[in-house]
Design a protein around this nucleic acid. Sequence first.
DNA 1: TTGTAAGCGTTATCAG
DNA 2: CTGATAACGCTTACAA
Lengths: 339, 339
Amino acid sequence: MAATIKDIAKRLNISVSTVSYALNGGPRPVPEDVRQRVLQAAADLSYRPNRLARSLVTRRTFTVGVVPTEPTIHLAITPYFQGVLNGVMNEAEKYAQDVLILTRYTVHRADEMVNSLVDGRVDGAVFISPFANDPLFTALQEREFPFVVTSAFVDGAPSYIADNGTGVYRAVRHLYDLGHRRIAHVTGRPVMEEGRGRRDHFVGITSELGIYDPELVVEGNFCHERGVEAAQELLTRGASRPTAVFCANDDSAVGFIEGAWRLGLRVPDDVSVVGFDDAPISTIMRPALTTVRQPFDRIGAGAMRGLLDLIEGRGTPAHEQFSTELVVRASTASPLEDK
Amino acid sequence: MAATIKDIAKRLNISVSTVSYALNGGPRPVPEDVRQRVLQAAADLSYRPNRLARSLVTRRTFTVGVVPTEPTIHLAITPYFQGVLNGVMNEAEKYAQDVLILTRYTVHRADEMVNSLVDGRVDGAVFISPFANDPLFTALQEREFPFVVTSAFVDGAPSYIADNGTGVYRAVRHLYDLGHRRIAHVTGRPVMEEGRGRRDHFVGITSELGIYDPELVVEGNFCHERGVEAAQELLTRGASRPTAVFCANDDSAVGFIEGAWRLGLRVPDDVSVVGFDDAPISTIMRPALTTVRQPFDRIGAGAMRGLLDLIEGRGTPAHEQFSTELVVRASTASPLEDK
DNA sequence: TTGTAAGCGTTATCAG
DNA sequence: CTGATAACGCTTACAA
């Protein structure tokens, strides 16, 4: 049977409170010799503190929840999730927090998800790219459960998200400056902020430039496969086909390039492609992908720090927007007719 | 203040035990009408069970730990870790388990790591690619803490690992059959089973084929950058340079190819490259990488199931070895001189 | 300075 | 069949 502070107290004929204070180094002072004997006894009995018992009374776990808000199997393998989770984990490590990943998001009803979160195991949670209008959130707010979200805007919750506006602007402007006028867009899932937002910005920017054409906006879902299909759709239109495309993320851009290849078209000679994310593959694939970099790890780290502010009562942190950067590589060039 | 079963009991003038049994549907029967009233009261008070309290007495958390045994920042972004973690998470979801990621592995002493694990928050743990001789393990075994390991062999712990022997054999044999005789090897970190093991198999197999040359085995570390350097090292040897290389994983193979490019050499024309993993990039990069596929997700899932067997007292599961598969793509060809 | 005891929110063992 | 009550292991008033 595992030793408890009671066992230590009994063995040394002192009280459990003294043992507790000795072990925790406070808040009340313990004579050095007593402290040493307690430590020795703890070692002898290979005592290990039980954090459940401690958390039950202190109401702190030093553990934060992470909620992948898509079916785990889909989201967990995306560069986006992995990058943000990595940022969360590294920052958690700095602040001596552990990370509890809540699986089973979609499988259970929202109500059960609330249970999982407010059951005492975590001090707060980071929602990675959730749906803004999930009823879950109001339930959590009613209970004053601390949480933040990444890549979405949820009323009343601190939000950590890339600056999509300037990101999309840079991507489109880059293509425009290269001479492209028929620029297509493969959207992300419109139901997600990162999909809807980038699409809206795309429409806004191309409109301002006077080159907006609704026919050139096709719905995607952030996935490779859909990128392939979109290429099929957009590049088989004869004369009216686009000379360039901006994809809502790198995965779909990579798919688009593959789709172009399958049609016998060359990137960037026949069609230029810009992605969004700067996922690891974008530097490795050929042609290397021109893309808008968003700092996954800093987004995750920012969310983690914001959550800790919330948990530790330092007030509600401000929304944070992360600047993006255009990384020009080999998948973009001037349109053929210009050359 | 959050409602507890006591509040429900008080409100209905019944005992807490009845409330508990009503809420849990057992183990002792509760009249249907009472049960309904309890459920109603629970809803009214928006009662949420506290899992810490429950776990404290039942000694079960339905949460498993995952320990990234490298500095989090390094390991967490590798395809290997991500793939295995993904397998663990998906299997966890099936068995209604949550996943606690223990950060701070190397930062703290082994002893503190033991504390983190046996402090009651998890029922057991999966160690992802640990060092076999970590003193941590004996400490955990003394306390009969259930754990399994992936990609390593730890005395007394169920192990989930790819069949490196046949994997390496397939890779080398493929190159040999293409006509290569000067086959180099960029090892993984020799201190890890997956590094040492693959290197030993490489030496064994090339020896049997009568083509072993110690000069052609250079130490790597599973990283892209080291692959680039290894290419520099191996491909600048003039006449004695290898015509093919087997890299211990895909990341270093990708690095090797980049290194070859920088030297003005072509893959596979000037040098053939085989990797190990079948990471996502291997299909996307150009030339697409010939590699040995290991099933990350099945390894993670297997480890998760094995751990549950251990936790639930179904005995110690057997080691599991996962078969590998050679995926021939575009980075390998016959050596030039043969053509 | 130290010990006793009252929680924390459950489950589980007793009596009645 | 149901209601007290004792754990679970810890922190922390409150007494002494």
